[in-house]
Each structure stands twice: as C-alpha cells, then as structure tokens.
Design a protein around this nucleic acid. Sequence first.
DNA 1: CAGTGGTCTAGACCACAAT
DNA 2: TTGTGGTCTAGACCACTGT
Lengths: 237, 237
Amino acid sequence: MSAKYKVIYDYLRNGITDGTFKTGSKLPDELTICSEFNCSRMTAKKAYDMLVSEGLIYRRQGQGSFVLAKQQDLDVIDVQERQLEGLSRTSHGRSKSHVIRFGLIFATKEIADKLNINENDPVYDILRLRIINDKPYTLEQTYMSPALIPGITQDVLNESIYSYIENELGLKIASAQKTSRADISNDLDHEYLKLKDIEPVLEVEQVAYLDNGKPFEYSFSRHRYDLFTFSSYSVRR
Amino acid sequence: MSAKYKVIYDYLRNGITDGTFKTGSKLPDELTICSEFNCSRMTAKKAYDMLVSEGLIYRRQGQGSFVLAKQQDLDVIDVQERQLEGLSRTSHGRSKSHVIRFGLIFATKEIADKLNINENDPVYDILRLRIINDKPYTLEQTYMSPALIPGITQDVLNESIYSYIENELGLKIASAQKTSRADISNDLDHEYLKLKDIEPVLEVEQVAYLDNGKPFEYSFSRHRYDLFTFSSYSVRR
DNA sequence: CAGTGGTCTAGACCACAAT
DNA sequence: TTGTGGTCTAGACCACTGT
C-alpha cells in the first residue's frame, strides 16, 4: 500500500507527463485534491511540494499551481535520468556492459575516505564499458567494498550491479552524491569510447549510499561529451 | 520574522557547517527539537527533510538522524555553490566582469521558446567574461527580454544583474533549471579563457525564473574545465 | 519494551492575488 | 471578498530498530 501523498503525487506527475495537465496550465487547487482523494491539506501539499522540488511545477500564493515548461533534448541522455538505476533502464535502447577489468586492489586514501573504510582494505576494482545500441557511451570505473557487497562475479557485472544488490543481497540503495566535470580524454577514452584527441568527456564522480547511510559505491563515469548532459533544478528558499 | 521551520533548519545547518554536529554523529531527535523550539513534530520534521534533500543528513526509522560526510574540493568552484546568485558572492576571492558584447538582437526560435516570447522579439545579447582574482574563469552568454527586465546598462553588467533585478526592479528570482555538458573549446574560449585546443569547457545552460513563473534569463556559461564542477544529490523515494 | 521517524488528520490563522 | 497557498498545532497510529 502506497502512502497517500505518493498516490496524489503519481496522479499529478502522470497527468503532467501524459499531457493531461499541459505546460502553463493551472493544476487543481489543494482543497479540490483533498476532497477527490479524501485527505487533509498537509497531505496534498506534500505531493505538490515534491513536484516543486523536481522543477515540474511552481506555486504562487493567491494564484495557484502551474505546470512549468519542460526542458528536453532527445538526442542525448541526461545523467539525472539514470537517477539511481543502472543504465539498463534507459529509454534509449538496448544497453549492455563489457567488463574490461575486474579484480581486487588495496584502497587508496581517497577511496577509503569515500567508502568510509580503512586505507589498504581490499576493494573491488571494476572497469566497464557501457554500450547502447552497439555504440560505446561510457567508461565506468567502480570501487566497492567486498565487506559490504559480497559475491560480485563476472555474471553480476554483465547485468546490473544495482539489481544484484537490491534483489540478491536484499539491501536498499537510498541516495547518491554526484559531481560532474569536463575532462580531456585520455588513452582509455580514445580506445574504448572512440574519441579523438580533441574530444572531451563528461566525467561524473559518484558516491552511492545504502539506506543505512553507508557508502557502498565510489565511481567515475566518463561519458562521451556529445551524448550526455547533466541536469538539475534549484529553488530559492 | 522567519518561519519557525527555517529557524530550526538554520540551527541544524549551522551546527553541521561549524562542526558542532560532526560527520556521522546523531542529531537531536524530533521531540527534543520540539521542546527546545516549542514547536510541533511536523514543523521539526520539515526542517530535517530540507537537510535530507540537500544531502547533508540521512534519517532512519527507529534509529535517528545522522550527519553525512561532506564532499568538498577546495581547488575548484562548484556551480551549485553559485546557486541563484551572481558569481560576486563566491568565497573564492574577488570577482569582476568584463563586458565583451552588449546589444539587442532578434530572438531566434530557440531563445523565444526558452524565454516564452515570440520569435524575432528583441532580446538583450550579452557576452561577459568572469574574472576571479584576475584570472579568467567563465565566458557567459546571456539572453534576456527587455520587456521583462528593462534598463540594463553597462554599469549594471559590471555589477551583478541579479542584484539589479532584485533591488532596483523589485522582482524576485525564484528558481533555475540547469543542464551541463562537456564541450570542445572554440576560438572565443581560446582567446578569453586562455585554453589550449585540447582543453575543453564545462558548459552550463540555464533558464532562470522569476517568482511569477516567467523565465527571464536564458544563458550559456562556458567554464574552464579545470576550475569548475557541478554537483547534485538525489534521494530515492 | 522504549526510542525514533513516517504518515496523517482536522482544524487554525496568515499573506497574497484577483475581482 | 473570495480563492489560493504558507505555516503551524496537538494530537494520532503505524513501522522499524535495538535492548
């Protein structure tokens, strides 16, 4: 059973996505939602505020709630779209992974810091090439602690690590911190992403957390510059 | 008079920032906050949830609220840090602007779409170089509608457009949608940002909105690849 | 079990906008 | 004045965690 605010959120979000609520149009006011969904104003407001924080709507005292214009570019993949899923779920076609390197190394100070383990503790060292529709898109360097995420194998890597963690290990992935930057492409990028010297990558550094607050994955994804963007929305408070 | 949840939020956030609440430590539980600030649980929870959405803390049923590790790199400027301010306010030293081009053009279809005006309506066409501590950092191409933001002059451009809009025009800036990507540096970048051919830029495309929901600024900021990052935090729901 | 957060209610008063 | 959202209360019940 989903929370009531989630039901309302889904109703509004789907309406925005499928065009029932068009760009610029006014959404039902809170009291209307309250009577339709038999809830209190606080519950309705929570659903609306989630949409505000996603940048899908804005709300004005005395006026109402309105659908914001969408910002979409269909030729590229937005990193935010991936959210906390693996790439496998994108709407951009069939994706697969090619494992280039898979082994154990001793954690450097930086890796240890990010994963909240001790320096020189063993960590998985995984380098994968992400391929969508048979075209190389992303080189992904991943570090994970075997103490936290045991039993990683080649088979797991060829599928989604994330679904292994959630379905096989029964752990919950809760959140991720991402930092992106532009970088000059290196030899690996040239070889695997088929980039020329002058063509850069969009590197996304990520620390992903389980729902117990423990960081379980530290990764660097180097995306082809022409195929990826990275979006965000900020509201002033 | 600040809202009560904001007072609580500031109290917790300052405590995290100044080290009163250390990384990994447990924050006061809701009932403690309620009695200290004489508020209801809903109000305390709102403050905590804001910190969750910023990625500063996490909360677990049955356990409590805990401070997350910070991700900070002091050598570079994070675009999120700028938030909705001009660069003038960064903690990275004295900043100024050099206006390279300032005039009016007719809106292309793309500009008109983003600013929600008609094609061929006049728009300000502004190109500025951002300089921090006498080093070039960012080339910023800005489009704004004079119908919405009148009276832009060279003087305004040398200061902050944002403070002009808020203080002189009395308008409120509410939110911004940003998309970033890596790009090959062009001739302008080479000339003004002192980049070599092979060195890329981090381009951030932004649409900024007033609190009446109207987009007032459409801009492209091309940052030196070695001096800027772009951060975000996402929580699974 | 007690401690803690997640959700929800049924009101209340206020601020702001349009008429 | 009416419609709308912003904030807040004082409870309630539930779910999860650790002892």
